[in-house]
Amino acid sequence: MADYLIELTGLSRVYGRGDVAVHALRRVDLRIERGEFLAVMGPSGSGKSTLMNLLGCLDRPTAGRYLLGGEDISRLSRNALAGVRNRKIGFVFQSYKLLPRLTALKNVLLPLLYNRSEPLSEAECRERAAAALESVGLAGRVQHRPNELSGGEQQRVAIARALVNRPAILLADEPTGNLDTQSGGGIMDLLHRLHRDGATIVMVTHDPEVAAHAGRVIHLRDGLVERDDGNGKQGVAS
């Protein structure tokens, strides 16, 4: 039996009720193995964001079941979901979402501050954050503020922040969407490297070239998985 990190069974998300109800996801079944690199594609309104919000434990499904590492998290409380996000999920956003007045180090520190299951001392936190920055190639940029960094560097800080709590899965929402080709390529290389080192990555993109980096691409349309390519294949480096 395969080692599934994520198992979605009949997952639905409905916004509103009655006549105005919007069915963003309709009974989606999806399994993601540990160590997979999955790209999610689809036109706007297809349910990509809804799926990512559910995978990221920012939202709860209307129906269906979500197992993350064997734990059913579909019915957890808001507080418990916050804990799951902190420990198991690393978010990478299109617009980086760094706090502009904090240094790179302090931005990367943030998830550690909210880590209650494995509280670290101040010094350990700094050490870990510095190590995370080093692992994304920003050892020399620790004390820089976001406005002193290029877009690619800012996204690397964001990736370091996503990794610092050693999450089970990395959720990237258009990670290269705000970057030029060269910086975007650098970010994709970094994701590849993380994937090779064993990270499970789910990435939303509308760009087929970016999606081609992933070992598996699923296409959503109208809240359903329309196509699921390359299931089980390893990522294709290019």
């Binding site: 507080n79 996000r85 978010f91 706090l99 943030l110 909210y114």
Partner: peptide
């Protein structure tokens, strides 16, 4: 609001 959302995504509970 954006900062609050980010902190929540990074694991801040409503109480935090």
């Amino acid at each position: 609001t954006g900062e609050i959302g980010l902190r929540q995504a990074l694991g801040a509970r409503p109480r935090d």
